[in-house]
Write a protein that binds this DNA or RNA. Structure first.
Lengths: 122, 122
DNA sequence: TAAACATATGAACAATCATTCATACAATAA
DNA sequence: TTATTGTATGAATGATTGTTCATATGTTTA
């Protein structure tokens, strides 16, 4: 294997074994792709509008227009965010005549949000 | 109370009771401040560098320089992100001579990340 | 068919963010 | 004290993001 480029300049005078440390960390560190997907997922939860949409859909499935009314936002803004939520597989939709009905698409959503609530409540 | 401004233009012809819907949604919707804090928390998880730092600290407490070496990033970049993690109360630190030792500051971290992993694994 | 309705989407803009660079601060060693 | 080491931080920059506006797509009604 080739030498890795060291972005950090040096390191503190090591009483501990750096090689062992780096090895054991990279053992348990997930693949880069998993880390990326994980961050992308949490990014989706990192916006109040999307959190509100999820809370709204906890109540019941709903068409885009209803969500917009409930949250007092434009149809366009909601539609854009629903697309993000759908790409993250957090919501799904179905057509009912002219309307598109959105609903939650994952059982973990409530758990993830609950965990977050528990943390901020200390 | 004054009239609420309607950002959405109108709404789909309502077979269902909008007032009831809006009422029951706003019943279960958390306070704006909670929603904001919640989104801020998930935002912190929404970056691969910070996720990597958390995974690193799962292994053991560590000084800034070690984290930088393990992740092959500059001390400055790590330090900036540790500040974000600390503000979110996800890590804490203590001084040991010249070094600042960082460690995890919350029991929910592993659970939140695990939930995320479970979702992306479908 | 044309008109109305519900939703989706591309472009534009302002706001936010992660990293880099330079430098400041704090503790120890000489 | 001065030099060195470990960390923090402000400014600058390029990249990303949420909303708005205008418009396109798809469905139903007249």
């Amino acid at each position: 294997m080739a030498e890795k480029d060291n972005k950090h300049e040096h390191c503190c005078l090591e009483q501990h074994n750096h090689k062992e440390l780096i090895e054991s960390v990279s053992m348990d560190m997930p693949e880069e792709e998993v880390l990326y997907d994980l961050a992308e997922l949490f990014k989706v939860f990192g916006d109040t509008t999307r959190i509100k949409i999820l809370y709204t859909l906890f109540e019941s499935e709903m068409c885009v227009c209803d969500i917009a009314e409930v949250l007092n936002m434009t149809q366009s803004a909601i539609s854009h965010q629903l697309k993000v939520l759908k790409q993250a597989k957090l919501v799904k939709n179905r057509r009912d005549g002219k309307q598109i009905i959105y609903s939650l698409d994952d059982g973990h959503i409530a758990n993830i949000i609950t965990m977050g609530i528990e943390h901020i409540m200390e």
